[in-house]
Amino acid sequence: MRADARRNHDRLLAEARAVFAEHGTDASLEDVARRAGVGIGTLYRHFPNRHALMSAVFEDSVRELLARAADLQTAANPCQALLTWLREVVAHAAAYRGLSRALMSATPTSALSRCGTPMREAGNALLTRAQNAGTVRADVRITDLLQLTHAIALAAEESPGDPDLADRLLELTLRGLT
């Protein structure tokens, strides 16, 4: 990639991160381009659609969540490790208004779902460890837990006056896992 194209790409990502955090993932892509100092055509040359841009914005956070899952693999309490990771997934989703809704509705072929496979694999490793320890039911699936975390983040997003809601809902979920 040419140096000027790389600069545009990096500015678009930085501004998209800021705009999505400030206004949510439904924010105007024209606003992202304007704030990055480029035209909307430049944005679409780098990111063909909203999900491609969102995916690029969230890749760093996903890498952090994957690294955290790897760290938690050696935790003394496998069930607590799983719950800790799920809390961090909810916190990640909550950082950007609309992310949970977008993740829940992403098609398997969308750019946004590209992050899903490694997240499912990382979460499944934690879940399997908790199941092998006998602290989580054998019929629980990671896809269900990730959908629940997105739903919890969405519920918390819709209830900003209740900062403890996500944690309470995660605790309720955990009780249903055992």
Results as ranks from 00 to 15, higher is better:
44 Y>F: 05
45 R>A: 08
46 H>T: 12
49 N>T: 07
51 H>R: 14
52 A>W: 00
53 L>H: 01
53 L>N: 01
54 M>Y: 07
55 S>H: 06
55 S>V: 00
55 S>L: 00
56 A>S: 10
57 V>I: 11
57 V>D: 02
57 V>A: 09
58 F>Y: 10
59 E>D: 13
59 E>R: 08
59 E>S: 11
60 D>H: 09
61 S>L: 07
65 L>Y: 06
68 R>S: 02
71 D>F: 11
71 D>T: 14
71 D>V: 11
71 D>A: 12
73 Q>S: 08
73 Q>K: 04
75 A>F: 11
81 A>E: 09
81 A>G: 08
82 L>Q: 00
82 L>G: 00
83 L>S: 05
84 T>M: 04
85 W>C: 00
85 W>L: 00
86 L>H: 06
87 R>H: 15
87 R>P: 07
88 E>R: 13
88 E>A: 15
91 A>Q: 09
93 A>E: 03
93 A>F: 06
94 A>N: 07
94 A>V: 02
96 Y>E: 14
97 R>I: 03
98 G>P: 03
99 L>N: 00
99 L>K: 01
101 R>S: 10
102 A>T: 04
104 M>R: 11
108 P>A: 04
110 S>E: 09
110 S>Q: 09
115 C>R: 08
116 G>A: 04
118 P>R: 04
119 M>L: 15
121 E>Q: 15
122 A>R: 00
122 A>C: 05
123 G>R: 01
124 N>M: 10
124 N>F: 12
126 L>Y: 11
127 L>P: 02
128 T>W: 01
129 R>W: 04
129 R>F: 08
131 Q>W: 15
132 N>I: 05
133 A>W: 05
133 A>V: 07
134 G>D: 05
134 G>Q: 02
135 T>F: 06
137 R>E: 11
139 D>R: 13
142 I>V: 12
143 T>P: 03
148 L>I: 15
149 T>K: 05
150 H>K: 08
152 I>Y: 03
153 A>E: 10
153 A>M: 05
154 L>D: 11
155 A>H: 12
155 A>K: 12
155 A>I: 10
156 A>I: 06
156 A>G: 07
157 E>I: 04
159 S>C: 13
161 G>P: 02
163 P>L: 07
163 P>M: 03
165 L>T: 10
166 A>E: 09
166 A>K: 04
168 R>L: 11
169 L>R: 13
171 E>D: 13
172 L>Y: 06
172 L>C: 06
173 T>V: 14
174 L>S: 15
